[in-house]
Design a binder for these strands. Structure first.
Length: 99
DNA sequence: CTCGTGACTTACG
DNA sequence: ACGTAAGCCACGA
């Protein structure tokens, strides 16, 4: 199975109300290709089934987003999932999902 | 095979 | 806190 498919699969496992980081995502597939995670999201081959907005930076900041509205929409979607965002940062202690 | 790319991370000054 | 640099890895051309 291709790495990209594994990443997508894992990302879909993130429960509602939780988020994950590029770092954790890479670790979950036994890889250190942190940068590639974002690369995959941007390419967005399966955007319909992949909640890329649940992927954030290791320090809890939002990171980036190429969808409609960009960062703003990403934050909105996260809030919709019940996640509290403080000054563009997410409380990883509460919302980080580990694989 | 090599090269460029990327929504990252860590370390250092 | 901020900018810079280096490390990292899969993928397409």
């Amino acid at each position: 199975m291709e790495i990209s498919q594994k990443v997508y699969s894992n990302l879909r496992k993130v429960p509602k109300g939780k988020v994950t980081t590029y770092k954790e995502l890479a670790k979950s597939i036994n890889s250190k290709a942190y940068r590639y995670m974002g690369y995959l999201m941007k390419h967005n081959k399966d955007s319909i089934n992949i909640p890329c907005y649940k992927v954030i930076n290791s320090d809890g900041s939002i990171g980036n987003y190429s969808g409609n509205g960009g960062i703003k929409t990403k934050i909105k979607l996260l809030k919709k999932d019940g996640i509290k965002i403080k000054n563009k940062k997410i409380d990883l202690k509460k919302y980080l999902h580990k694989f």
